[in-house]
């Protein structure tokens, strides 16, 4: 089981990708910066399972909180929490 790369409080960016296969990285979150609020545990990567891989990657899943204003533009004002596999995320420098 992979050790989680991120911890609660870390700022992370959802990758700006456009895969041809199924993914559970919602399009509205791609490229956006949020904060890890929970490390949920580990699950098989949905993208690998959807492609029928015999041994899908097992990855930590994080709850990441995004400010609505970053996702949708002003005025924002609420929060959107999205649950993301580790390979969907990258470090914010």
């Amino acid at each position: 089981m992979a050790e989680p790369r991120f911890a609660v409080g870390d700022r992370v960016r959802a990758r700006a990708v456009d895969p041809s296969h199924h993914t559970r990285l919602p399009r509205y979150a791609r490229g956006q910066v949020g904060e890890v609020v929970e490390v949920q545990g580990t699950w098989p990567l949905a993208d690998d399972r959807a492609q029928g891989f015999a041994e899908p990657r097992i990855e930590p899943v994080y709850t990441v909180r995004f400010p609505a204003g970053a996702l949708w533009g002003p005025p924002g004002g609420h929060w959107v929490q999205v649950e993301l596999w580790e390979s969907y995320l990258e470090v914010v420098a």
Binding site: R24, L25, P26, Q40, W43, A46, V61, R65, A68, G77, H78, W79, V80, Q81, V82, E83, L84, W85
Partner: peptide
Amino acid sequence: TEIVVHDTSAES
């Protein structure tokens, strides 16, 4: 009141 929307995008 602060609103938090939870998008059930993984396995929980």
